[in-house]
Computed example of a mutant assay.
Amino acid sequence: MAEPRKIPGLAGEMAAEFAGTMILILFGVGVVAQVVAGGIGDHDSISWAWGIGVTLGVYVAARVSGAHLNPAVTFALAVFKDFSWRKVAPYMLAQTAGAFIAALIVRWNYTEVLAKADPGHTIKTQGVFSTLPGNGTLPVHTMGAFRDQIIGTAILLFVILALTDLRNSAPAANLGPFVIGLLVVAIGMAWGTDAGYAINPARDFGPRLASFFTGYGGAWRDQYGEIYFWVPIIGPLIGGVLGAGLYKVLIGRFLPSAEEPPEPDPAPTRTELETA
Rank of each mutant, 00 (worst) to 15 (best):
K116R: 11
Y91Q: 07
P133N: 07
L175M: 13
V88H: 14
G176D: 05
P71C: 00
M189N: 13
Y228F: 15
A267P: 13
E259L: 13
G206Y: 03
A190E: 05
P261A: 07
V79P: 11
Q126N: 08
R270Y: 12
A198G: 05
I199F: 01
M143W: 15
G39M: 08
V179F: 12
F212M: 13
M14C: 14
R63T: 06
S169D: 13
A33E: 05
L26D: 01
A145T: 09
P139V: 01
R253V: 05
G192D: 07
G20Y: 07
H43I: 08
G39K: 12
E260Y: 11
L10M: 13
F158G: 12
F254D: 06
A103R: 02
M14T: 01
Y216S: 00
S211V: 12
G12I: 02
E272H: 04
M22I: 08
V60H: 07
R147S: 13
I105A: 06
Y59E: 02
D194P: 02
P201N: 05
G218L: 07
V113Q: 14
F229I: 12
A210R: 03
K87A: 11
A210L: 02
P266D: 15
A49E: 01
H43A: 15
P268I: 10
V29Q: 03
A154V: 06
A258R: 04
I238W: 11
A37I: 03
V140L: 07
A78F: 01
E112C: 05
G53R: 00
E259C: 11
I23F: 15
L161I: 08
A244I: 02
G240A: 06
T96Q: 02
E259V: 11
V249T: 12
M189Y: 04
P139M: 04
M189Q: 11
F27M: 08
H121P: 03
R221W: 09
V31N: 13
G28T: 01
F178A: 14
M92E: 05
I251Y: 07
A67V: 04
L69S: 09
F18T: 06
I227V: 09
G20N: 03
